[in-house]
Amino acid sequence: MHTYLEFEKPIAELEGKVQELKLLAQEDPTAGISDDVAKLEAKAAQLLKDMYANLDTWQKTQVARHPNRPHFLDYAKALIEDFTPLAGDRNFGEDEAIVGGLGRFRGRSVVIMGHEKGNDVETRMKHNFGMAQPEGYRKAVRLMEMADRFSMPVITLIDTAGAFPGREGEERGQAEAIARSIDTCLSVQVPFVSLVIGEGGSGGALAIATASRVLMLEHSIYTVASPEASASILWRNSDKAKDAAAAMKVTAQSLLELGVIDRILPEPVGGAHRERAQMMADAGDAIEHELRDLSGLDGASLRRQRQEKFMAMGRGDLS
């Protein structure tokens, strides 16, 4: 069952028609409509291709949040052997908004973690929609430090609307937990690759995305504040999210132009959710490529390079 987005309506209609005709052809092979089916299918494919080549910022925002898009656990299953999730911040609790642990990526031991949004009511609640509490970030710190101790590369997959804004989180130092996580990202002396797979929401994303290499999927977004929050703060009207998204330049393409990310990973035609296996395999190749690129550097150089990379952001000319 495929979930269509609002703007995909023309595609939904065409693909619906194709399905109908296919059923008809099955029931009555003598009807001679297989040519029509093929023509219509080609038309639908072309429409999808054209549409996805020209998505506007708001459409990309919706694709980035598409419920069928592969999430962290899908990538972990597809790319990581012996994936062994580790739990808890050794201080207060376990926060499943960030899932992470040890595993084997293309033959080497790694620490891998990411925000998990969940896929249905039950798992979304379990993972708190990918919105972490302080414990999530403190677990992330713990895992990054472990990676550092055992000389394992760190891979993070980013997919969150942001850190959770709640009473208990504030009580337990949400701000300090995020700050410490950014700090740790900049300290570890191992290769560190981040990939934004959906939504990179503000400090809650940056906390585990201050990496040696930061990649984004073609239709993912990365924001200082969600388009909805920006709209209500700057336009004083949350209905202006569409305008806010455009003005804030949140697409992978804009971020590459601004020098904030290193590379964009193309998505299959029609988005990551249409060819999930293909997307995850491509992501694996891209991460492997970056890790191989970083593997020649010693620990101190890796840390220095990461520091210099972020120190350069906002210095020098951009326009």
């Binding site: 700090d183 940056l206 703060i233 520091q307």
Partner: peptide, 19 residues
Amino acid sequence: MQEGILSLMQMSRVTVGVQ
């Protein structure tokens, strides 16, 4: 917020200074 993602990156950037 008017500087978008570049303002977010200042969090990491200043943290380098702290280090």
